[in-house]
Design a protein around this nucleic acid. Structure first.
Length: 310
DNA sequence: CACGCATGAGGGATACGACC
DNA sequence: GGTCGTATCCCTCATGCGTG
């Protein structure tokens, strides 16, 4: 009786406290097969492909539901960055590494075995061995687009990924992963019994207890819309939406001592805010006057920021 | 629900006395 | 005389409210 969608309708939040049968729970970083069962139960693809199948969680889920599967991994001769994808998949499940949180090659399995059986050292192609975040994201996005390109029209990719907090910095895979096609769903998946549960955190950050399943669909084969993160910097003095109060406060904020009006003029004059207003000097003076809660008047022509103001 | 009207924030423009 | 401090007026836009 395949596709028993039983009492677990798929929703935008999922939680699998007991991991269920399948896969190897000693293989760190793998997920509950129940997630994949639920995805298969909902989308009902004829087959499922997994190009980073790891310990075989996808196979366990597919077998249980009687769905055909095509499974590959770096540990058994398939390198996503360089090998051709053999199928035109209808459904891809992808559980990429969480950067370098868990190293796979030569840790979860022996590099020498792969060298012996397939003739390459898996460590050189292993995404979990990329030390810097930028190149990791680049490679991830390449692998994402490569898999998406292989999809048949109407096909889907479900990507299970998590954000990472390292030394106070958030590295968000969900933000930075490229999103080709139609972004159909983002599912929050609760994490249970993960390694970080054991760590006593020193305080100032919110422990991450969830990951995401992003589902994208390929609607048109040739022209594919994509959403991708782009880092940029804007100057508040050139920004539509920033008020005069914002601009003046921002300039004063980087000064420890009271500054002259001339200084404020110099800092603001070259920017769009000033260039858009013929009376910009007057506006600056007026702004300082009408916001006594934010701006201190330290004698004629001298101003500073009231840092205690809310 | 469309409308007319009031209100208030933000911004532009101008004027003018005080001060250096 | 030029800069600074202050007041005033007008415009636009968003929001809220009562009325028909």
């Amino acid at each position: 009786m395949p596709y028993k969608s039983d009492t677990r309708p798929l929703t935008s939040i999922v939680s699998y406290p007991e991991r269920g049968e399948g896969g190897d729970n000693r293989y760190r970083g793998n997920c509950s097969p129940r997630l994949i069962e639920d995805l298969l139960g909902f989308f009902r693809p004829g087959e499922i492909c997994d190009y980073m199948c790891g310990s075989g969680t996808t196979k366990a889920a597919a077998d249980k539901l009687g769905v055909g599967s095509h499974l590959y991994d770096l540990h058994s001769g398939f390198d996503i960055m360089n090998c051709e994808i053999p199928e035109r998949p209808e459904f891809i499940f992808w559980h990429p590494p969480y950067w370098d949180i868990v190293t796979f090659s030569d840790v979860m399995y022996k590099a020498s075995d792969v060298q012996k059986n397939y003739g390459y050292d898996p460590r050189q192609y292993d995404l979990s061995r990329i030390p810097d975040w930028e190149s990791f994201v680049d490679k991830m996005n390449y692998a994402m687009m490569k898999q998406f390109s292989a999809l048949e029209k109407g096909g889907r990719m479900a990507v299970l990924m998590g954000d990472i907090k390292k030394r106070g910095v958030l590295y968000s895979m969900l933000s930075e992963i490229v999103k080709p096609g139609s972004l159909e769903n983002i599912i929050i998946k609760a994490q249970h019994n993960c390694f970080s549960d054991q760590i006593q955190y020193s305080g100032k950050f919110i422990p991450i207890l969830h990951e995401y399943v992003m589902i994208v669909r390929k609607d048109s084969p040739l022209l594919v819309p994509i959403i991708m993160a782009k880092k940029a910097e804007v100057d508040i003095r050139d920004m539509p939406g920033a008020t005069w109060r914002d601009v003046v406060a921002a300039v004063l904020e980087q000064c420890s001592e009271p500054v002259t009006l001339t200084f404020l003029y110099e800092k603001i004059e070259p920017h769009k805010k000033a260039q858009a207003n013929k009376w910009w000097k007057e506006k600056i003076r007026q702004t300082l006057q009408i916001n006594p809660t934010y701006f201190f008047h330290d004698g004629r022509g001298m101003w500073s920021l009231n840092r205690s103001a809310a």
